[in-house]
Amino acid sequence: MNTLEINNLRKEYVDHYTGETIPAIGEVTFSIGEGEFVSVLGPSGCGKTTVLNIVAGFIDHTAGDVLVHGKSVHGPGPDRGVVFQSHALFPWKTVLGNVTFGLRMKGVPRVERERAAADILELVGLSGFERKYPHELSGGMQQRLGLARVLVNEPEVMLMDEPFASIDAQTRRKLQQDLTEIFEKRRPTVFFVTHDIDEAVFLSDRVVVLSARPSTVAEIIDVDLPRPRTWRETVEDPRFREYTHHIEERLGGGEPDAQAG
């Protein structure tokens, strides 16, 4: 059984002014297996974040199913941890307070919470920052914290919504490398949304390419690159270039307003 299954998902908005129905997601079907890293890639404004928000349970869908371990999803829940682009850390909680938040909601005792937090903070390289507040961290560190906050709950599937999009290019590379290492160590199941082709290919086991609005699955590509991956070696791999070129053509071909948004 797949960890996450998305079957014939459709989403329409009703414009309250005109009363018109606007299709956002045409029809999307794909699944993610246990311990698999899948990226969803598409032009800006194509509705990939909408798919993620539906899976997370933040918004309703019009038709179709979202199943986690075969069970239909209603509303947000701790089985699906979300890493946001804007990191969405709680500014009023310390690093430790943010990391232990989910465990506290589950009712895990304090001692266990803090032990788990210490492990995770070590993993993401934030040991020693426990007492800092989010605004005292750099953008990269904030996003590591956002990742740690979800990892520590050991969700069935991690949903990552363009987590590195608003981070400078150098730091982004480093974060992608670190995320890969963390993934290879822990093997969580990851649903990763991005518009960065290199990022998608480098991180993923499979890449789901969406078309522009109303989005449908244009293609699903198996990324057959060896793990453990490092940027230095992976970029050298001719297959990496093949994948990225292929996706670039795929995206560039159909869509005139890929720049919009």
Partner: peptide, 24 residues
């Protein structure tokens, strides 16, 4: 404003539409 979406025909009843426009 996002790129102009493809518009499907109206399905919301006229009265409700009037209501939303009026309320705005």
């Amino acid at each position: 404003t996002p790129p102009a979406p493809t518009r499907a025909p109206a399905r919301v009843p006229l009265l409700r539409r009037l209501g939303t426009v009026l309320l705005a």
